[in-house]
Write a protein that binds this DNA or RNA. Sequence first.
DNA 1: CAATACTGGAGACCACCACTATCCAGAACA
DNA 2: TGTTCTGGATAGTGGTGGTCTCCAGTATTG
Lengths: 207, 207
Amino acid sequence: MKISELSTATDVPVATLKYYLREDLLPAGEQLSRTSAAYGEEHVERVRLIRALTSVGGLSVATTRRVLEVITQPGAGRVDVLGAAQRALLGEDAVVVPPCVDREVPPSRARSWLTDMGWQVHPLDPVIDDLDAAWDACEAAGLGLDEERMTAYADGVLRIARADVDSVPQDPAAAVRQVVLGTVLVDPVLAPLRRLAQQHLTVGEGG
Amino acid sequence: MKISELSTATDVPVATLKYYLREDLLPAGEQLSRTSAAYGEEHVERVRLIRALTSVGGLSVATTRRVLEVITQPGAGRVDVLGAAQRALLGEDAVVVPPCVDREVPPSRARSWLTDMGWQVHPLDPVIDDLDAAWDACEAAGLGLDEERMTAYADGVLRIARADVDSVPQDPAAAVRQVVLGTVLVDPVLAPLRRLAQQHLTVGEGG
DNA sequence: CAATACTGGAGACCACCACTATCCAGAACA
DNA sequence: TGTTCTGGATAGTGGTGGTCTCCAGTATTG
């Protein structure tokens, strides 16, 4: 498959494919001669994956590169599946502190709320800071988001997460792939789903 | 309050405040003389709202302007709360087709799935296309997202949406504000919440 | 009073990002 | 033989979210 065929197969311009090659998102094809290379079905899949991550997932090219590295490399085993996902999605300098290390835990509303909920999560996980920032933003915007509503959200999210973890395959490499892609690509599914659910409930009430 | 004080109060550079004034995100202060104006507490709140929408909500300046218009103007009444939210968040040329108008409904997996679920939603709502695109992206990325898992997601999302609609106030203007801000700002709360729930469930299993 | 700091307004400028366009010598195909 | 295509390199584009600089004029401070 020539690059122009790869282009028509994926509906991505040749110039863009060259850009992906340059940026190390796409591995080089099999070099047939100095001015020709052959691409295979794995390149088609890779391009589709890149487009899914960048367009729907909203990932930058740099983040996409990290994600592709993580889900392509033979992983270090399932122990660190969630950690690998985090490292791929956060900055490359993000080191997830192992639970054994004692470090000052900054107090925050999210942290204390999680404790109240009895959720067993890593107290230094940066995702808690994301939650804090989002919660603060709601307050700053004047959107009342009290703990009662958060608890209702937690109930719904737990069911979603249950479906997530139940769908993770046994094979470590496949598990990493599933978790990473699920983290990136499922949020854009849930967002419209939530709006449709709101609409369904509102219509049902006759309001 | 001078612009420099507004700057320190909100921790936003003066140049950026001027930019927001230019872009009509921030209303002009009370003109005291030709070279001085007074800003009030409402400007502080407005700036915080702008920052929440752009940073956490990830909205562009143009979309933020539309959102601010919608939640500031005295609304046309509660009838159209969800419609107003959609119009604010989608392109300005997005016209939500009224349900009475018969138009060709393009078939799609999301649409048929919604029918199977018995959800009463507007069949031409563009948010269904968003769902389709996100679902397709999962497929393209090789992430198996079968209807069983979608149904589990729907269960969780329904509980979230229940909390959403229960928290909408009676007053029409407040309702519009609540719905629009909830649409934009709650998704970034749910995303980290989902990751934490995954972590909690995984740790609980000892895996 | 004078020196300094600050104001609103305007336009130019900037960095970043994801492409996109152009050019090239050489190879493949018709 | 001529047209099309290749990989590689470099430069340019359009959009976005600010940031810088300048200005005449006003407020504050010593």
